[in-house]
Design a protein around this nucleic acid. Structure first.
Lengths: 189, 189
DNA sequence: ACCTGAACACCGTTCAAGT
DNA sequence: ACCTGAACACCGTTCAAGT
């Protein structure tokens, strides 16, 4: 009885999944720099070497987390697109973008971290490209020649707002909420 | 004769300055994560403990580098402001902003790194505030009620462009240069 | 006052060995 | 096939001791 717990999970069952789950929690709690592979192994209850059966390196683990992040981001953006009337679409998607960043600060930072794409993994690029494709819905109604610049402008505005808010560079005024600020800034763009 | 080199620099003369100089070079070469305090000490030729006479921690060293970064940024922005006609001012300062980011990628990233302001050091905040005050020159001509939103819009656009370009998320088209892209994006803002 | 040497408590990663 | 134990080469940081 006393050995069954360990024995039944010696081949952990789903160590890869358990690692990802715990790592995502640690990422959000402490940031990518504070996510230690040894500490992660400790939390999950395996030896320091065990994670290497499932991830070649810490970078690959972070990459997997970032891909999950891009998928969640895509879901949030498509939901905002679907649930809004065409006239409100730009605002709704911009607000969804900023809200995702503020709700998942360390995951969002990881998704844009330069350490990630060192060796340009294709699965990461694919997930990121799919995520940013959601933004193109915003410029669908514009004439062809203006699409690129309009899309970049909208993206830069909303991404800039997100990271400046995230880093505490923009202070919200008393009574001001994020949605109102986003609406004011991108509304006249 | 053989001992004079070491002896005359035992009290290093200006170890603090030498550390900052070498650290700035390492930062630009490898990023803040790749900047090791022990490696830094090795490069400068002192013991691993020596830097602690001048900086309480690695965080404080990075903070000093970031302050230098904000000062350089301010200089670049004021230069752009001074050298441009009023009508071209927004474009010139936006281009200076993005160019600073692309010319000093790891310094720029450090300036906006969340690890820095953990315990809200006042000298860092002062340097950052002074740097962003340069942006207010852009909205000086606008009516009072529109200043804040217009300033935030301009800042978000230009900062978003900078970080997206830095991370390789925006691909420049063949023959397209950064200044032209910045002009196109913020021109109609 | 400023720096060294040695130590402490960590890392990420590798690899032979166990089950 | 999957995991452990022990090791390697590092970290940041501290502190008694040297000059």
């Amino acid at each position: 009885m006393s050995t069954s717990r360990r024995a039944e999970h010696y081949h952990h069952g789903d160590l890869r999944h358990a690692l990802l789950e715990a790592a995502m929690a640690m990422l959000e709690a402490e940031g990518a720099a504070g996510l230690g592979l040894r500490e992660l192994a400790r939390v999950v209850g395996v030896s320091p070497a065990a994670p290497y059966r499932h991830f070649d390196s810490k970078g690959r683990l972070l990459e997997a987390l970032a891909i999950t992040g891009y998928q969640r981001f895509s879901t949030a953006m498509w939901a905002a697109e679907r649930q809004s009337a065409p006239a409100r679409r730009i605002g709704a998607m911009g607000q969804a973008y900023v809200r995702f960043a503020l709700d998942n600060p360390n995951l969002f930072r990881l998704m844009f971290s330069p350490e990630l794409k060192r060796d340009g993994r294709p699965s990461l690029r694919l997930a990121a490209d799919a995520a940013f494709d959601t933004l193109k819905a915003v410029t669908a109604a514009l004439p062809e020649g203006e699409k690129r610049v309009a899309a970049l402008r909208a993206w830069a505005q909303v991404h800039g707002l997100a990271v400046l808010l995230l880093d505490g560079q923009i202070a919200l005024r008393p009574g001001e909420d994020v949605d109102a600020l986003v609406a004011a800034v991108i509304g006249a763009g």
